[in-house]
Design a protein around this nucleic acid. Sequence first.
DNA 1: ACCTTTATAAACCATTTGGTTAAACTATTT
DNA 2: AAATAGTTTAACCAAATGGTTTATAAAGGT
Lengths: 202, 202
Amino acid sequence: MKDEKTEDQILDAAEKVFQRKGMDGARMQEIANEAGINKAMLHYYYRSKRFLFEAVFSKAFSIIAPEINRVINEDIPLFEKIRKFTHRYIDFIQKHPYIPNFIIQELNRDTDFINALQSKKGFPDFRNFQAQVEQEVRDGKIRAIKAEQLFIHLLSLNIFPFLAAPLLKGFLKIDDKTYKDLMEDRKEEIVNIIINYIQIKE
Amino acid sequence: MKDEKTEDQILDAAEKVFQRKGMDGARMQEIANEAGINKAMLHYYYRSKRFLFEAVFSKAFSIIAPEINRVINEDIPLFEKIRKFTHRYIDFIQKHPYIPNFIIQELNRDTDFINALQSKKGFPDFRNFQAQVEQEVRDGKIRAIKAEQLFIHLLSLNIFPFLAAPLLKGFLKIDDKTYKDLMEDRKEEIVNIIINYIQIKE
DNA sequence: ACCTTTATAAACCATTTGGTTAAACTATTT
DNA sequence: AAATAGTTTAACCAAATGGTTTATAAAGGT
């Protein structure tokens, strides 16, 4: 961290501040302080708040998007894929708990942003997953379900508990430690509820 | 709307602007314009941006919290409760699509906010639901599951698709109309996946 | 050594922003 | 109708904020 180049120090600091405060709540001066660097440097390297923000956003997205994409498009059976995705995702998000909320929040704030993202490489491609689901349905390996709904189930069950962590802790009246344990249990919970749903019963 | 008192006009305008831009992104002048009213009035009636925001937030929360609470605590069998909650919630949210995101966003921005809310009347009480789940497990009506996980499943599957609507539309490459149909289908989808999960198989 | 480019910092600036004031206007009370 | 209390507006203000400028080093090339 000591020999880190200024440009990266700024990006790291901006990451923290933007994730804490969002685009509008963040202050350039606060980012400069966090980086221990003169404010003029932010403009020197990133030109404007907007550009700096986009750099941070792209980085966050480019961390999580391939993570989703990779598992989704791997060439393994659906059951296995669901288990793998869930375990990987929850492990991953425990390390970067701010990312989902950051992305969802900014995507709701600026509706056009998603269009800019879609063109970027690494944007999750759903078609592969869809084809696989349809194939396994045809092969009689799983019940007849719509790939879209299955996909939304999977993301909902995995992502929501992290988005809504403060709210859920409030509802359930539990502390951080208990909540973390609950998330750990969810790995198998989620796999079970989904597989149980798509599995053909004898 | 014409004869509406100034105070309410302001609240309505603030609602729109805060929901569009969030606490930090919203401008007092923009709210005044939206209300077609002098900016000084906002301070006259609500004293500060913070207070105005809290009025808006409380209103949103007091619309949705009882909706959740009522169904959750109704005295009906669990299966029926899950169906009722899901149908009611999705219908409700189609009418107020901005509320979940607004609440989640601000709860993540200001962690202490949840504490202030908890004391308020109408804050969803989970204990009743928990007791019911435990009872039905003991009675052998449903599989042995933790009430917390079931509760999180239920909220995740219902709320997430609205929080992440822009993202999911991007992933699935579908338009608003198709997405709305998908949400309609989800009513039964969600009921099925959950009931299928907690049901005891013969 | 000399010059050019890159980096850093301090001071500065124009605009925006939440908030205030003082005056005017409109009920309401007496 | 005079006095009082409540409501509304335009003008104003101080602080904050994103961004710029100017000066000064440091590094790299010749």
